[in-house]
Structures are given as structure tokens and as C-alpha cells.
């Protein structure tokens, strides 16, 4: 599916993916983890790749291999450089009154594997969970 890069579309996208996850036989908790990972990835795209430009599009696909379920989310905005990522120090961020900055950390904790790639000006985050 593809949607406008608007936070107003977060719920329909995470529900879409969660329904697929459930249909693939994931438990309630696994489904909730996938739902949250998708939300965090899409929120980061809206905020950082597109800077809240709602005229931009986000492309979502889901699929499965023999023993894994994957969600791929693509954008055409500023690419996220995973090499700059460091694990957030949550108590320090609270002390500094910083709102969030923990989305990538959550995605990594919630999914079994996360891959970032950029090809032909399309950035992709592929999030994989074992079935």
C-alpha cells in the first residue's frame, strides 16, 4: 500500500500490517511488537526523511519467507544513516527534557533483524521477525 506521509495515516498503516501479522499466525504480543515497530519506522520517515511534508509518499509492503515475516517501508526523502546511530541513554534524555529519540532503539528491540538500504533515491527499512 502507499499513503501520504501524514501522522494521520499511522493508525491505518499499523493496523494493516498487524492484520497481516496476525494472519501469519503471530501471537498477540508479537503482533503488538510488529505494530509498534511499523509505527516507529513510519513516524521517523514523516519526521526526519520528509520533515512533515505531507505531499510525500510512503510505500509499505509485507511478505513472508519460509520462517520469517517482513515489513518493508520505503520513502524518497533524506536517507537515515544507521552508522550514526547510538543506543539512547533514556535517563539522560529525560534529564535533558528531550522528547523521544528512541524510535530506532525500539525497532531494534522489537524485531529480529532490521536492514536499511538506499537504491535509486529510494530508502528502505526492512524489518524482519521470525515466524
Amino acid at each position: 500500500m502507499d499513503v501520504a506521509a501524514s501522522t494521520g495515516n499511522l493508525q491505518s498503516v499499523r493496523d494493516f500490517v498487524a492484520n497481516h501479522a496476525r494472519n501469519h499466525g503471530f501471537s498477540g504480543q508479537d503482533t503488538e511488537e510488529i505494530r509498534l515497530a511499523v509505527d516507529e519506522a513510519m513516524t521517523n520517515i514523516i519526521k526526519h526523511a520528509y520533515g512533515y511534508d505531507e505531499s510525500k509518499k510512503i510505500y509499505i509492503s509485507v511478505g513472508s519467507d519460509d520462517d520469517t515475516f517482513w515489513v518493508a517501508i520505503q520513502d524518497t526523502g533524506h536517507a537515515f544513516d544507521i552508522s550514526t546511530y547510538t543506543t539512547p541513554d533514556v535517563p539522560e534524555r529525560v534529564k535533558q527534557r528531550q522528547k523521544g529519540g528512541v524510535g530506532v532503539y525500539l525497532i531494534k528491540r522489537l524485531m529480529d533483524k532490521v536492514e536499511y538500504s538506499t537504491r535509486n533515491e529510494h530508502n528502505e527499512i526492512k524489518m524482519i521477525k521470525k515466524l
Binding site: 499511522l10 509505527d39 534524555r93 529525560v94 527534557r97 522528547k99 529519540g101
Partner: peptide
């Protein structure tokens, strides 16, 4: 029913104040 880190961020930003 549901919370993402954007929701948690609100608590992160104001608890110290």
C-alpha cells in the same frame, strides 16, 4: 489501547519540570 514512543516522549519532556 496503544502507545508509541511519541506518546512516551511527552512524559520524557515534562517530568523534570
Amino acid at each position: 489501547e496503544y502507545i508509541s514512543s511519541a506518546g512516551l516522549g511527552v512524559f520524557m519532556a515534562y517530568i523534570e519540570d
